[in-house]
Design a binder for these strands. Structure first.
Length: 510
RNA sequence: GGCCCAUUCGUCUAUCGGUUAGGACGCAAGAUUUUCAUUCUUGAAAGAGCAGUUCGAUUCUGCUAUGGGCUACCA
């Protein structure tokens, strides 16, 4: 019997989601859609110390911007609500106690201070402290204390935690969908805290296993940083007697810092010249970080780039719509090693999407930019401009700088370009060109093209010097779209005006 | 330190024992564009090292090196 595919993305609201997190969400989403399953968003806010206001809303908004649709979650609700762990408090204690009763866990009364002291003391001897089978019998735990003592300490309000009683010397054989078989010996593991009385909240491990079980999760797709705790999770499934429905696991390779060492972290910020967050983030203390959205990336390009960072279809296709990603995604083709990513490649993806977008769609985005620069621009003109300029743009924000000469005559003329193309005979060419343009039957690019070429040929004028002088007069710099198209967009009056102006400024004596 | 994971051009990657080791980004050159960009063509650029298995290893095994992760009453 095939189990229904149900996956979850379970971020902790301790700050903005960074792109590694987005990629984890994406792979979960693609996997769910690929198999006709469900994608669940669960908020793991069991760390009351690190909770950051606004982080959850950020996560929701980021997923939405990316086009990752949540089937069940905090906002969407669902059969297993609530989906915020802080609202599931009462569920976890019951399970933690169940483990104590079955002998798989125990109470520990050590205070954080005692633990720190113990840790410091052990390290002073050059050893590593581990809360495990070697020390638990000697500490203040229900393993050593009598039942009456334990009850009394709890009753009088002593703080306690419930720790997992990690077996000694047992080989745990696990399976990872990306890495294959992984084996670990339990003696190298410690007795992880599962539940803390201080905030009446479980830790990640307990909450995670309980919720994945309750929410009938079939596949856990998460970052590689969780691989070391897989044996604990396996053992927890066993301790609860849930091995039959234990999900499959897949640990994704990490996204590494673009430069330097270590995994990509939230703290990297935008110092490296490109964002590490999908959306702009303003932290409660006022610090801001760039976001892909605000920096002008198209969500499709952002997703396309992220999808290929750690996964590939095995073909040479590079551009994928979300639908195509869904159709082709498979965990078997996820790579094993961590990936650094290149800002240049992210930009290339964005440029590809830019070139492929329709003029109408880009015009829609261009209009507000024109307005912000205080110029009048019709939708029709905007479409012409973006159509002419999009091959030169990587981001929407590039357009203004690229297109300002559609609205105003050049205020200065590029010196290098001048030096190359402004010759003694140039004023004569321009004066005549002005007449040709003035007399054109219709101010349309093809008509102008023909008229100007006929005029040049009839007089034996060299095309290069004429056309480049033309560009100098209209644009002021040595770049831009074809002159005839450009003139058509700015119109006859403005074209003639600019040539006249260039003549006055550059050849006043003539 | 301990445990675990990984290791192909600068970067992202293909290869599932036999290939001139392929593609993409970036870089360089050329063509096109009477400018620029786009586009196209071409080029430089890789199997970490050492053993072993094999007729044959980038591919399988071991060791070393390197990188990464974890080692909290954080996720």
């Amino acid at each position: 019997m095939e189990r229904r595919v149900r996956v979850r993305f379970a971020p902790s609201p301790t700050g903005p989601l960074h792109i590694g997190g987005v990629r984890t969400a994406l792979y979960n989403y693609l996997f769910a859609r690929r198999h006709g399953g469900d994608f669940i968003l669960r908020i793991e806010d069991t760390d009351s110390q690190r909770f950051v206001p606004g982080a959850e809303a950020y996560i929701t908004e980021a997923l939405k911007w990316c086009g990752i649709e949540v089937d069940e979650g905090v906002a969407e609700g669902g059969p297993h609500a609530p989906y915020r762990q802080s609202e599931r408090r009462e569920i976890y204690l019951k399970y933690a106690l169940q483990l104590v009763e079955s002998g798989n866990a125990y109470y520990a009364f050590d205070t954080p201070e005692e633990l720190n002291a113990l840790r410091a003391e052990t390290e002073a001897r050059g050893e590593t402290f581990s809360y495990n089978y070697q020390v638990r019998e000697r500490l203040a735990t229900s393993l050593r204390l009598s039942a009456a003592e334990v009850e009394e300490r709890i009753a009088r309000g002593d703080q306690w935690v419930i720790r997992f009683k990690m077996p000694e010397g047992e080989e745990v054989h696990m399976r990872d969908l990306i890495r294959g078989e992984v084996t670990m010996n339990t003696s190298t593991l410690d007795d992880k805290v599962l539940y803390k009385s201080a905030d009446r909240l479980p830790t990640y491990h307990l909450a995670n296993i309980v919720d994945d079980h309750l929410m009938e999760i079939s596949h856990v797709i998460r970052g590689e940083e969780w691989l070391p705790s897989l044996p604990l999770h396996y053992l927890l499934y066993r301790a609860f007697g849930w091995e039959q429905t234990r999900p499959e696991f897949a640990h994704l390779p990490l996204l590494l810092k673009p430069t330097g060492k270590g995994k990509l972290s939230k703290r990297d910020g935008d110092k490296m010249g490109f964002p590490v967050f999908p959306l702009r983030w303003v932290s409660p203390d006022g610090e801001t970080a760039h976001g892909y959205r605000e920096d002008g990336y198209f969500p499709e390009a952002f997703i396309n780039m992220l999808a290929l960072l750690g996964w590939n279809p095995g073909t040479e296709q590079e551009l994928f719509s979300m639908q195509e990603l869904i159709e082709q995604f498979s965990l078997e083709r996820v790579s094993k090693s961590g990936a650094r990513f290149q800002p240049e490649k992210a930009q290339w993806f964005n440029a590809q999407y830019m070139h492929r977008k329709s003029d109408a769609e880009l015009a829609e985005l261009y209009l507000p930019i024109a307005e912000a620069h205080g110029v009048e621009c019709s939708r029709q003109k905007a479409e012409r401009i973006v159509g002419l300029m999009k091959s030169r743009a990587t981001f929407m924000s590039d357009f203004w700088e690229l297109s300002d000469y559609f609205f105003a005559a050049p205020t200065e003329y590029d010196a290098k370009y001048m030096k190359k193309w402004w010759k003694p005979e140039t004023p004569r060419y321009l004066a005549e060109l002005k007449q040709v343009l003035a007399g054109a039957d219709d101010f349309q690019a093809p008509v102008l093209d023909r008229a100007v070429n006929e005029w040049m040929d009839a007089n034996g004028y060299p095309h290069g010097p004429v056309m480049n002088a033309f560009r100098l007069a209209i644009v002021g710099v040595g770049k831009g779209p074809g002159m005839f198209e450009l003139c058509e967009v700015i119109g006859r009056e403005e074209s003639l005006e600019r040539i006249g102006r260039a003549l006055r400024e550059l050849a006043p004596e003539a």
